[in-house]
Design a protein around this nucleic acid. Structure first.
Lengths: 140, 140
DNA sequence: CTATTACCCTATAGATTTAATAGGATAATA
DNA sequence: TATTATCCTATTAAATCTATAGGGTAATAG
């Protein structure tokens, strides 16, 4: 299951991507528009900024804005930042690999085999989907 | 992330599928062979039996056994039974659909759009992978 | 220069889920 | 009738998630 943190984070990023200009958008604006608890959103945007995804401006007229072109932001980056590993088990994770304590040999492990396939497919989707793609309304 | 319950459940099912005959296998045997806490495994096998996946036999020479041919058991069934929804968000789930509280219109929701793609792909894999496929050792 | 605005940061708490354990009841077999 | 092995409920320990609280800091306007 996707955490609310990730869900809200994506929504906020898309909100910023849909902005025509790069003018800062206030937390409260996004919070109201996307129905997200303002304080919770605050902490999410903070981690997005700390990880180089967003810039911010303080004081009146301040807010958050995207640092890069939405076309240049693949969802792999966003997902790993907010949700962590894309794989469903650590033993098939590229960026968060961990050996299973119970599994003597990954090569003959059924779970490994299955989840490797799932990871490959999911990864492919996230790689080929940018924030710009998600910002285009409806269908496609 | 895949829960240990699901992980252990799949391993146990594969263990049973790898059995040549349909003779009952004791919990303790699977538990030792797969490095799973026996009591925890007990509860997992119980739910698998209650949902028509396994049969059981009590007393000496008892144990659990598959009720169907592994070729006839797609991973969609197993996953839904053990893990629940395959989708990462309830609003794109086929069997566990739920509307998001915060989302006024799913058709223009970026998260919905993205997770729908992921679900479609993952579902396809689970549909086309049977317990028999996972039981074949190594590569493929 | 000072009031206001809006982000910055840490800590904590409540709720939920997960993973496992405990302890015995029940049924089948030898 | 003793033994074996599943059946079943309840409980707990730990982890994670989802916020909320409460103030600090920097920028802007007038």
């Amino acid at each position: 299951m996707l955490s609310k943190k990730t869900k809200y984070g994506i929504k906020a990023l898309v909100h910023l991507a849909r902005q025509n200009d790069r003018e800062p958008v206030q937390i409260s604006t996004i919070s109201k528009s996307e129905n997200i608890s303002q304080k919770f959103l605050e902490s999410i945007l903070l981690t997005l900024r700390k990880n180089g995804m967003l810039g911010s401006k303080k004081g009146k007229g301040g807010g958050y804005y995207l640092l890069k072109d939405p076309k240049e932001i693949p969802m792999t980056t966003v997902m790993r930042l907010l949700e962590g590993p894309i794989a469903m088990v650590p033993c098939v994770s590229l960026n968060f690999y961990e050996k299973c304590a119970d599994c003597p040999d990954e090569n003959i492990c059924a779970v490994n085999k299955l989840m490797l396939k799932v990871r490959d497919n999911t990864l492919e989707i996230f790689r080929n989907t940018t924030l710009a793609d998600l910002s285009e309304l409806a269908d496609s």
